[in-house]
Write a protein that binds this DNA or RNA. Structure first.
Length: 822
RNA sequence: GCCGGAGUGGUGGAAUGGCAGACACAGGGGACUCAAAAUCCCCCGCUCGCAAGGGCAUGAGGGUUCGAAUCCCUCCUCCGGCACCA
C-alpha cells in the first residue's frame, strides 16, 4: 500500500522548490519563442481572496504551465493596481495611512496567491502606488498635454457626494456611483480630460481583427456608438452666430418644424435674456441643471420643454420655426442641439404632440400622404420623399442621406459628419490616493506643466485624513506651495489626482522594464514581447479598462514608444463563481458584501492547493458562471487520492521503453489528444473528466494484469504530466519519485500518435429510418457492404427490416449506418 | 425598447449534424469492519412491461435533413450590456 497522500506537506515543499529555482523567471531581453500571458492585476483589497477570485488566477496558472510545457518561453508577471479609494476610506475610518494599509494588503495577498501554487515571475512585480511607477503616469500626462490630448475644461460633471469626487460616465451606473451607490449629482467644475474621442475611429476599427469574445467587442462598439449624419447650421433670430445641429437623418430636413436646445447649451442663457419670458426660462434652465442624473434618466417618459419665443430658419424650407429648450436634449452628445422632425422621430413626435408643435411628414407610401392629424406615432421608415424640393421621389435609405448631404454641403448649410456616443475621458479625481497631476497654477502665467526634471511629483505622506473635509492634498501646504515654472513666482500645485484607470492602461508594458528609471517603456523589449498573447480577467472590465488600455497603447504608438495599437491579442473572460446567499435565498455572485464567500485558505489547509485547483477548474466551462459546491470539493480530493494511489502502485513496476500497442496505450494516446484539445479551448473541466477516466483505466489495467511490462508505469508518468497544469504539487512530487530531475513545467507536453489515438474496433450504430435499432461491433474502417451485410444478418435489426425494401442507406464509416425503408 | 448570451436528469455539466446525459455531486443498494469513518463495487431521465423489449424526452411550437440538443423561423423565460445618443 502506498504511503498517505499529505497535500499540505507537498504544497510547501514544491512552492519552496519552485521559488528557490526561480522557475518562473524570464529574461525579457530575448524574445525568442515568447508567449506573454497576463492576468489582470488586482486591487490589493483588505479582505482575503475567496474562491471566486481564485478562478481567475488558477485558470491563468493552468494556461501558463501548459504553455510552458508546449515549449514556449512564457512570461507570467503579477503586480498591484494599488491606488484607489478603499485605501483612502480605510484611512478615514481607522487612521491607518493609505500606503501602510496598501503595503500590508499586498503582502497578505501575495502569500495567498503563492499558497495556490501560482507561478508568477515576481522579479517583475510592480505596484502603481510606487513613485517609480506613477512618475511615468505624470510623464505620459505631460506628453499628452503637449499634444493637446490632455486638456482642462469646465463641464457639468458627475459628482458623487459619498466619494466626494467626480466620476467618469463609465463609473455612473443607473444614475448612481458604481462604487458607493450614492445618487450622482451634476456639478460644474474645471476638470482634466483625455481626448479619447480623437481616437474613436481607430478604437472602433481595431476591434475588427481582435481575437476577443464577440460580446466584449459588441459592448465596445456600442460604447463608441458611431453614427453617420450631418451637421446643419440653423440661423436664429436674436443670435449672430447660427446654431449647429447634429442629425443622422439629414434627409428629413424639410420636416424639421422646431429647434430644441439642451438647457445646458452655451447659447441657452443668451436666448433666455433676449426672449419675451426671460425669468421663466432662467428658472427652467436652473431647474433642469440641478436635476440629478438619476432623476433625469429615470424620468424616461416625461419630455419637458419651454418655448423661448425666438424663432430660427429651416434652411431647406425657409420657414420660421420655434426654438425650444428641452430636457431630453443631451448637452454632451452631438452639438447639444437638435432639429425636431416629429413626423419621423418618435421622441420629437411625443414632444410635438405634448406642446402642439406642427408635424410635417416628408415620406409617403403608394401615393398616400400621411395625415399629421391622424398620426399616433412617428412614421415607420420607408416610402419616398415628397415636399422636399429636388429630393422628391428618393426612397428612404442611405441614398436619400447621400443626396441630402450633398445638397446641404453645396449650399454651405453644413457638412456630412460622423458622430460618436463616446465622450472624452475625465481623469481628475478630488482624492488623495492617486497620481498627482503634474500641473502648477500661477496667478500670472496660468496653468503650466511641471518640467520633466521635477518628476516625480511625490504624494506627500504626512497628510491627515480623519475629520478633514475636501481633498486631503489641499491641506498639505508643503505640497501645494511651489514656484511657477514660468516666472518663478509663488504658485500652487494642482491638487487633483488621476483616475486609477490611467495606471492600469499601460502596466502590461511596464512588466518588461519595471525598475527602469530612465524611461517609461523599453521599446526594444516591447517590440519583442508585445502584444500580450493571452489576457485573462473579468467581464466587468469589458468597457472601462479594456477601452482605456487600447486608447493609451495608441497614444504610446503615436509617441513612438511602441509599434502596435492593440495591446491584447487574445482575451478571455472567466465567468463568476456563484453561491447561495443565505440572506436572500438566491444564488448570487460570490462577494464579501453578500456574505456568501468561501475562503480557499481553510480548504488549502484541509485538502491542499491541488484539490482547490482541480475543483475550481472542474466546476464548469470557465467562460460561464458556476455555482460552488462544498461536496464537489470532496470529489476533487478523492480523485487526487486515487491518482496518488495509482502512482504509488506504478512505482513498483518496471519503467522503461515506450510500450507496445495495447488497449491501454491506445486509451492513453486518446487521452493525450483529448486533454490537449480541451486545454487549448480552456476547457479544463472536460480535461479533468478525461484524466479521471484515464486514471480509472490505469487502475483497472493494473488490477487485471495483462499489459506488457513498463506500460503501466509509462501510463502513470503520462497521467502525471497531463495533470500537471491542473494539480502541480502532487504531479511534480511523483515526477521526482519516478526518477526525473526536472520540474514538470520544464518537461515537454506529451504528444500523441493519431494512429494510436483510436481503438481497433468500433461500435457502429445501426438506425432504421433514423431510429437507433441496434449496434454492431466491427473493425475500424470497414467498407459499407461489410457493414450492411452484418446489419442484415443481425437478429434484432432483421425484425425491423423484414419484408420491407431498403430504399437508401446512409453510411458514416466507424459511426453509423442508417437504413431508410421503402 | 435595442444589442448580446443562455435554457439538457434531483444538481454541476458532456455531446456543436450521427448512440442524449461522458465526468462528477447528491441519493439508493452492497462489500470490508465488533462498530464507525475512510475506501471499494453496483444502480440511478420519465414511462409501459414479469421479462425480452417498446414508447417518450434537451424551454414551447413549426421547418430543413436519411438523421437535429446542435442549423433555420416564431414565441416564452432567465442572465448580461446599453438605454431620451438626435
Amino acid at each position: 500500500m502506498a504511503e498517505k497522500y499529505d497535500p499540505v506537506e507537498l504544497d510547501s515543499k514544491w512552492q519552496r522548490r519552485w521559488e528557490e529555482a526561480r522557475v518562473s523567471f524570464v529574461d525579457t531581453s530575448d524574445g525568442a519563442d515568447k508567449f506573454y500571458m497576463l492576468n489582470m492585476f488586482p486591487y490589493p483589497s483588505g479582505s482575503r481572496l475567496h474562491v471566486g477570485h481564485g478562478r481567475n488566477y488558477i485558470l491563468g496558472d493552468a494556461l501558463y504551465r501548459r504553455e510552458r510545457m508546449a515549449g514556449r518561453r512564457t512570461l507570467n508577471p503579477m503586480g498591484w493596481d494599488a491606488f484607489g479609494l478603499p485605501a483612502e476610506n480605510a484611512a478615514i475610518a481607522s487612521g491607518v495611512p493609505p500606503r501602510e494599509y496598501t503595503t500590508g494588503n499586498i503582502g497578505r495577498m501575495k502569500e495567498q496567491l503563492k499558497s495556490l501554487g501560482l507561478l508568477y515571475d515576481w522579479s517583475k512585480e510592480l505596484a502603481s502606488c510606487d513613485p517609480a511607477y506613477y512618475r511615468w503616469n505624470q510623464w505620459l500626462f505631460l506628453r499628452m498635454w503637449e499634444r493637446g490630448l490632455a486638456y482642462r475644461k469646465t463641464a457639468p460633471v458627475n459628482w458623487c457626494p459619498g466619494c466626494r469626487t467626480v466620476l467618469a460616465n463609465e463609473q455612473v451606473v443607473d444614475g448612481r456611483c458604481e462604487r458607493s451607490g450614492d445618487a450622482v449629482e451634476i456639478r460644474d467644475l474645471t476638470q482634466w480630460f483625455f481626448r479619447i474621442t480623437d481616437y474613436a475611429e481607430r478604437l472602433l476599427a481595431g476591434l475588427e481583427n481582435l481575437d476577443w469574445p464577440e460580446r466584449v467587442k459588441v459592448m465596445q462598439r456600442n460604447w463608441i456608438g458611431r453614427s453617420e449624419g450631418a451637421e446643419v447650421f440653423f440661423r436664429v433670430d436674436a443670435l449672430v452666430e447660427p446654431i449647429p445641429v447634429f442629425t443622422t437623418r439629414p434627409d428629413t430636413l424639410f420636416g424639421a418644424t422646431f429647434l430644441a436646445l439642451a438647457p445646458e447649451h452655451p447659447a441657452a442663457a443668451r436666448l433666455a435674456e433676449r426672449s419675451p419670458v426671460p425669468a421663466d426660462l432662467s428658472r427652467f434652465i436652473e431647474r433642469i441643471r440641478r436635476t440629478s442624473r438619476l432623476e433625469r434618466e429615470s424620468d424616461t417618459g416625461e419630455k419637458e420643454g419651454m418655448d423661448t419665443g425666438i424663432t430660427a430658419l429651416n434652411p431647406a424650407t425657409g420657414d420660421s420655426i420655434p426654438v425650444w429648450l428641452a430636457n431630453f436634449v443631451l448637452p454632451d452628445y452631438g452639438t447639444g442641439a437638435i432639429m425636431g422632425v416629429p413626423a419621423h422621430d418618435q421622441r420629437d413626435f411625443e414632444f410635438a404632440r405634448r406642446y402642439g408643435l406642427p408635424i410635417r411628414p416628408v415620406y409617403r407610401t403608394d401615393d398616400r400622404e400621411p395625415d399629421p392629424e391622424e398620426m399616433t406615432e412617428a412614421a415607420p421608415d420607408g416610402g419616398v420623399l415628397y415636399g422636399s424640393g429636388d429630393w422628391n421621389g428618393t426612397a428612404n435609405g442611405p441614398e436619400a442621406v447621400r443626396i441630402a448631404n450633398a445638397w446641404i454641403e453645396a449650399h454651405g448649410l453644413g457638412k456630412a459628419r460622423v458622430g460618436y456616443r463616446l465622450r472624452d475621458w475625465l481623469i481628475s479625481r478630488q482624492r488623495y490616493w492617486g497620481t498627482p497631476i503634474p500641473a502648477v497654477h500661477c496667478p500670472d502665467c496660468g496653468v503650466l506643466p511641471v518640467p520633466d526634471e521635477e518628476l516625480p511629483i511625490l504624494l506627500p505622506e504626512d497628510v491627515a485624513f480623519r475629520g478633514v473635509e475636501g481633498n486631503p492634498l489641499e491641506q498639505s501646504e508643503a505640497f501645494v506651495a511651489t514656484s511657477c515654472p514660468g516666472c518663478g513666482g509663488p504658485a500652487r500645485r494642482e491638487t487633483d489626482t488621476m483616475d486609477t484607470f490611467v495606471d492600469s492602461s499601460w502596466y502590461y508594458l511596464r512588466f518588461l522594464n519595471p525598475g527602469d528609471t530612465s524611461r517609461m517603456v523599453d521599446s526594444q523589449r516591447a517590440a519583442k514581447w508585445m502584444p500580450v498573447d493571452q489576457y485573462v480577467g473579468g467581464i466587468e472590465h469589458a468597457i472601462l479598462h479594456l477601452l482605456y488600455a487600447r486608447f493609451i497603447c495608441r497614444v504610446l504608438k503615436d509617441l513612438g514608444l511602441v509599434s502596435l495599437e492593440e495591446p491584447f491579442a487574445r482575451l478571455f473572460n472567466q465567468g463568476m463563481i456563484t453561491k447561495l446567499n443565505p440572506a436572500t435565498g438566491k444564488i448570487e455572485k460570490m462577494s464579501k458584501s453578500r456574505g456568501n464567500t468561501v475562503s480557499p485558505d481553510e480548504l488549502i489547509t484541509r485538502f491542499g492547493a491541488d484539490t482547490v485547483r482541480v475543483y475550481t477548474l472542474f466546476i464548469g466551462p470557465p467562460e460561464k458562471e458556476s455555482e460552488w459546491s462544498e461536496e464537489g470539493v470532496a470529489g476533487a480530493w478523492r480523485f487526487l487520492q486515487r491518482v496518488h494511489d495509482v502512482c504509488g502502485r506504478a512505482l513498483a513496476q518496471p519503467g522503461g521503453d515506450l510500450p507496445a500497442d495495447s488497449p491501454l496505450t491506445r486509451f492513453a494516446h486518446r487521452t493525450i489528444q483529448r486533454v490537449s484539445e480541451d486545454a487549448r479551448r480552456f476547457h479544463f473541466h472536460t480535461a479533468v473528466a478525461a484524466l479521471m477516466e484515464f486514471q480509472r483505466a490505469l487502475a483497472d489495467a493494473m488490477e487485471a494484469g495483462g499489459e506488457a511490462p513498463g506500460t503501466v508505469r509509462w501510463g502513470a508518468e503520462l497521467l502525471v504530466r497531463l495533470l500537471h497544469p491542473i494539480a502541480p504539487h502532487l504531479t511534480d512530487e511523483w515526477w521526482e519519485r519516478f526518477g526525473h530531475r526536472t520540474f514538470l513545467v520544464d518537461s515537454a507536453w506529451p504528444s500523441f500518435d493519431p494512429a494510436l489515438a483510436t481503438t481497433e474496433r468500433v461500435t457502429l450504430v445501426v438506425q432504421v429510418n433514423g431510429k437507433v435499432r441496434g449496434r454492431l461491433d466491427l473493425e475500424r474502417g470497414a467498407p459499407e457492404p461489410d457493414a450492411l451485410a452484418l446489419a442484415r444478418a443481425d437478429k434484432k435489426i432483421r425484425t425491423w427490416i423484414e419484408g420491407r425494401e431498403i430504399a437508401r442507406t446512409v453510411y458514416v464509416p466507424d459511426r453509423l449506418l442508417n437504413l431508410v425503408l421503402r
